[in-house]
Simulated assay, not measured.
Amino acid sequence: MTFKTFTRHMAVSAIALGAMAVSAAADGELRLYNWSNYFSPELLEKFEKDTGIKTTIDSYASEEDLLAKLQAGGGGYDVIFPGTTTLGIMVDKGLLADIGVNKMENFGNLLPAFHTIAGDEERTYSAPYMWGTTGFTYDPAMVPGGKLDESWKELFEPRPELKGKIAMLNEMSDVWNAAAYYTGVDKCTEDPKEAQKILDVLMAQKPDVKLYSNDGTIDRMIAGEVPVHMQWNGAAHRVKAKKPDAVYVYPKEGTTFWTDVMAVPKDAPNMENAKTFINWMMLPENAAAASNYTGYSNAVKGSGEFLTDSLKGDPAVNTPEEFNDRLVPYKACSPASKDLREKVWTKLKS
């Protein structure tokens, strides 16, 4: 799906935003490449108004698609939104531009915990966009007894009433990680026997899965097409806006904690405009607008005052303290481990 293109031009050379200024050309273009439904059209419109830069956005269905696009030449995009796993690969392969994020005017607005990230420890290639978790959401009105256990077992060994009705994400890392947590296998294992355990769980589950999809997870749950959906927490928040009784689960075996970033392909045609955009996104009001739309948390200090009350009060977004020990951060896996993961995924999807 391609978002609406906004075409207004404003003859401005610099815009003052609060105590900080964002300098940009009075014209020019910017092309974004992001997940579908993961950036506010109104925020793009605001960026155009503030900078005069005509901005368009296209979407990809998976990080594998994003990586393939960059390896094939980048497709003429200026800003991309990879996750931590793909970010490290892109840096290693020399696919990204060193844009000196840590020297940008608004870098000081970031929370200290986000001053570094695996794969880009100095924060020269990337700035944080959204961060969140991967668990699952269910509709109490559609599940036996109105409640499911806080366990991946509900997806990998579904109750008889839910067989054939489970929806999974179509994201290799998220699915592999969940199965690894459930089987007690290190998600960075290099042991083929342990990888086989993960494959066995996924293959046994496959007949019970209605579909694997990253797109439409929100609408699918709201429409009642499935009772249970592996889901990112921001999507769960948006489901709850329409279905307040929906429950987001942090599985007790482990819940992936992730960060998505903004980065620039090395051959981006509008490099300076890309830098302007990333610096602009590190302003509290803009980061909050992105959070309010996506339902995910951001990494910018001072953005809290601009967040909606529903976002502040949703445990799917603001993880309850008692679940903190369930959160499993990103771990850089070896090439041998990644190779096993890809083989398992290929067999699962064949």
Score class of each variant (00 low, 15 high):
M221G: 01
I222Y: 02
I222G: 06
I222V: 14
I222N: 03
A223T: 12
A223E: 15
A223D: 10
V228M: 09
Q231H: 11
N233K: 07
N233T: 11
N233A: 15
N233Y: 08
A235T: 09
A235E: 15
A235M: 12
A236R: 03
A236F: 03
H237R: 13
V239L: 09
V239I: 13
K240Q: 10
K240L: 15
K243C: 05
P244A: 10
P244Y: 11
D245T: 09
A246S: 15
V247G: 02
V249K: 00
Y250Q: 08
P251A: 15
K252I: 14
E253W: 05
E253V: 10
G254P: 02
T255A: 15
W258E: 08
T259F: 01
T259H: 07
A268H: 02
P269E: 01
N270K: 00
N270E: 00
M271Y: 02
M271W: 04
N273A: 04
A274P: 00
A274I: 00
K275N: 03
T276S: 05
F277K: 07
F277D: 06
N279R: 06
W280C: 03
W280H: 02
M281W: 05
P284Q: 06
E285H: 08
N286A: 12
N286C: 11
A287M: 09
A288F: 00
S291V: 05
S291M: 12
S291E: 10
S291R: 06
